[in-house]
Design a protein around this nucleic acid. Sequence first.
RNA 1: GACCCCUUCGUCUAGCGGUUAGGACACAUCCCUUUCACGGAUGCGACACGGGUUCGAUUCCCGUAGGGGUCGCCA
Length: 439
Amino acid sequence: MSVRVRFAPSPTGDLHVGGARTALFNWLMARKLGGTFILRVEDTDGARNTAEASAGIIKGLRWLGLDWDEGPEVGGGCGPYFQSQRKAIYDAYLSKLKASGRVYTEENGAVRFKFSRTAITVHDLVCGDVVFAATEEPDMTVRRPDGSYIFHFVNVVDDIEMGMTHVIRGEDHLSNTWKHVDLFHAFGVTPPTYAHIPLILNPDGSKMSKRDEGSAIEHSYMNAGYLADAVFNYLCMLGWTPKAENEKLSRSELVALFDPLAIHKSNAKFDLKKSLWFNAQYLRELSADELFKHAMPFLKAKSLSWSDEAIAAAAVYSVREKVSLLSELPDWVHYFFREDYSFEADVITKLKGKPENATLLGVVATHLSAANEWSEQGVLDGVEAAAKELNIKPGAMMPLLRFALSGQSRGPGVTTIAHLIGRDATLGRIARTLREVLT
RNA sequence: GACCCCUUCGUCUAGCGGUUAGGACACAUCCCUUUCACGGAUGCGACACGGGUUCGAUUCCCGUAGGGGUCGCCA
């Protein structure tokens, strides 16, 4: 039998890391076994669900590259995939329960399911067989007086209707699973195989929920400058360890390595530093074009613009090993894009520190204006010639030139900066520094 | 409160009776270096506690403590 798994979010808010990882593991399972990954929106509670949230979740899943084979936007043979549109199916299933005497209606119209009140065992790939003693809880409500249905009921009905073979979800559902199994039995259906994955906790050990740092996919990752591949990779490492030498693994490697039996039982705390490390790793292996494409929205957000895209891309590429997030890029490259960059306080202090700095910059300018060709080597030759004339080491000239050309004390190689901004800008910036700082 | 799951360096983890308890992130130092980074090297650093079982427990069993979860006409 072909594997069928699903991610069944309730659209009450943005896609959350916990949900994203649940979707991720389901996706890995389907792709690993050549199965089907289904997206089902559990929007039975009209009061809490919104279309915006639903769209947001889809946006987040798309960004992470978790494509589904059946569900919203793609269709499939078991639709509709919004539970709010499946009332007739639920009514039919409720009738089955009525026929077998497993439900009863209360005075106000709510319908309850009669628990079997026997010990129930949940077979779980991660937790093993978990036995729940006969319950003493009140029978559970499956339909509200207004005719709408409750999660436990629709969840089970749809898992039956959509032919789910495995249910991979957060461990917070484990304690309720016996109720689902009871329902499956009442319908005369063998329950799917379960796999309850550990939860993601905050660094302090508390349960991570919306609002917490690093919890919302769109806000904390997409907009913060993460690469989807990095987030995908990092999330896999929370609660699962692939049998591999390295932790940095591509999607295809992760698919090939995936094994639900290797998923951990214990919860994992979110580690911001490590997520940044993963992102930095992925950032560095992007080509100049790819990096620029990803960086563009972040540059524009800081009002940076360019006329020569190749130069702009080269500028961004020159600082790729200095950042962990795309959002850090503008601060590292803004001076490539404008002449009115400001001078950092310590840069001004250092420039003014020695009176001979003005002379040094003047000599460098003279040599650079005479350079035969404007390449990095040409710039370097000019600086060395100036240093020789001044009888100092070329290395001693570099910081000064860096200060003048960027206003910053750190950045890519000085010759790279000069080469990319061009001769005119280089000479102009030296002149500006002489005029505005070393007066 | 009842029930369920969990417990190895600060964090993510390897380990599946005998290991100098390994790796990654972070941190520290050093090297490299025109800055900042990258990279390389080294270091710091853990089996929650108490009983068993065993020739021998991080590993198996029980208990305690601690953490998380579930007990809705939320999902």
